[in-house]
Design a protein around this nucleic acid. Sequence first.
DNA 1: AACATTAGTTACATCAATGTAACCTACTAA
DNA 2: TTAGTAGGTTACATTGATGTAACTAATGTT
Lengths: 119, 119
Amino acid sequence: MKNFHHVDYCPVRDILSRLSSKWAMLILITLNANGTMRFNDIQKSIGDISQRMLAVTLRTLEYDGLVGRKVYPEVPPRVEYNLTERGQGLIPYLEGLIGWAITNMPQILDERAKKEMIV
Amino acid sequence: MKNFHHVDYCPVRDILSRLSSKWAMLILITLNANGTMRFNDIQKSIGDISQRMLAVTLRTLEYDGLVGRKVYPEVPPRVEYNLTERGQGLIPYLEGLIGWAITNMPQILDERAKKEMIV
DNA sequence: AACATTAGTTACATCAATGTAACCTACTAA
DNA sequence: TTAGTAGGTTACATTGATGTAACTAATGTT
């Protein structure tokens, strides 16, 4: 029986735990779609993310080098975010997942609805 | 500014919220690697998943038609799990993500380590 | 002097996900 | 009759993720 992980440390689990936060993928996709964006732009684009969670999530993405952050020393402050090369490299795989979701969700929802009726 | 989601309902968020549980992708990958497996096989293969979380996660995967469940009316019970066609369709995209993780994690870890030193 | 601006931070509350341990069934073997 | 088996479930505790609201800095505008 093949076993695809070390219980100790697994890079896949590691990266998935980052991406699987509620907002991470959404932010990456948004930045990819729009290019460079300011903090408030991202927040408006996503619509229902709190200031706090946007800040928190951007920090972890920046920490892992997926997102770049550029501060302009102005008042009021201006901060621009963009995908790094590494972040861009991740996009095709996220889009693969998204494409699959869009293709398959209608039927999944359909089936879910039928199951709810029984319950 | 492009906006890729409805705040109300978004199939991508929906499916991601399922996949981004701690164990879901791992179970899918494990089933893909091994074919049909029994409950205890999956648990042993993953190694550190609790009985409860394996049961819970398998239920949601089954609910969305990604995993099939076949019960043999024997004692002690025998239950076999396998990927459905839909589940198999998801695998290439998961593997894309995994491949990216394996490729990129070494450098990410390297950078993290350097940042820790400063903190 | 008071107000608006942008990009946050902080303390705190709450909700969701996960973990632990005990229990269950129905049958077989010792 | 007691123990073992496979595949769970249940109640409960704990951890982790997310949300809310108030606050901040430094400057320009009214």
